[in-house]
């Protein structure tokens, strides 16, 4: 548990985890209770400023901002989890394959990922939503697809380092096949790098989904989404400027928290990497 003591003393990690905890807590809370039902309209009280009744005010349709934010947290977490999940599952598999097989398989996988890096991701997401229609599912898939090459790259280079270590050589000398080695030896050893990257990609996914929702291509109404709330706020910018603050702040704090947590994990899990600060 010495790790936990070190973690406690890392200010970035603590702050990041606290912020992320806030996000998760809000999302979980939303299942049990919200100040108001998030979809409930209250036109007479629309565009209300902060008050005791509505802690963060109401939007142009009288919906309670605080409730929208809390339920929106659910949305963000879902996006992050699934998009990163797709990326990790396929990306790590491809990366491990590339490191184990070497040769033309590795070359092919790496060329494909390099190609995808050169491709503006959000643009493709926009195109996909244009073709298949907007929606949360399609935007998660689009974001997830672009996570695959990121994890493939990282998994491959970390795996290559492990493959050249002696205990793997010993395992091969015992006759273990590449699958066994990849799963039992390589994978556990590259976990720290993957965890750090997953945290960072989580943040990237949230930002991407927010942009898509802002553009109207992501989460569709009535499902609340921080990005779309910003779009609605912009339309009311002259009448109710404060509406623009909260959803953006929620996104920024979440992303900041995830980034701090990721950087902190990087320092704590592998001190050698910490030198690259």
């Amino acid at each position: 548990m010495r790790w936990l003591e070190r973690a406690w003393r890392h200010p970035g990690f603590v702050t990041g985890t606290a912020l992320v905890g806030l996000l998760v807590g809000a999302a979980l809370l939303s299942f049990a209770w919200t100040p108001y039902p998030y979809a409930e309209l209250d036109i007479p009280h629309k565009l209300a400023p902060v008050s005791n009744a509505h802690w963060l005010g109401t939007d142009s349709l009288g919906r309670d901002i605080a409730s929208l934010l809390i339920v929106g947290a659910r949305n963000s977490i879902a996006v992050g989890l699934i998009a990163v999940g797709i990326g990790v599952t396929f990306g790590v598999a491809l990366g491990l394959l590339a490191a184990a097989r070497r040769g033309w398989v590795e070359e092919l996988i790496m060329r494909l990922s390099d190609f995808t890096f050169a491709f503006p991701a959000l643009l493709t997401a926009i195109m996909l939503t244009a073709v298949y229609g907007p929606g949360l599912a399609i935007s998660i898939v689009a974001i997830g697809i672009f996570n695959v090459p990121v994890f493939a790259r990282i998994a491959r280079s970390a795996a290559l380092a492990v493959w050249s270590r002696e205990f793997v050589l010993a395992s091969r000398a015992c006759g273990r096949g590449p699958w066994h080695i990849s799963l039992h030896h390589v994978l556990p050893n590259i976990m720290p790098v993957l965890i750090v990257q997953a945290t960072i990609q989580f943040a990237v996914a949230i930002l991407a989904e927010a942009a898509l929702s802002y553009l109207g291509l992501g989460t569709q109404p009535p499902q609340p989404s921080w990005g779309r709330m910003l779009n609605e706020a912009q339309q009311m910018l002259f009448q109710a400027p404060w509406l623009a603050v909260y959803p953006g702040l929620a996104i920024a704090l979440t992303v900041l928290g995830l980034n701090l947590m990721g950087d902190g994990l990087r320092d704590l899990l592998d001190p050698r990497l910490a030198r690259q600060r």
Binding site: L207, A211, L230, P247, G248, I251, A252, L253, V255, N259
Partner: peptide, 8 residues
Amino acid sequence: IAIPSFWF
């Protein structure tokens, strides 16, 4: 890095 460009 954490600020969405469209929010800014």
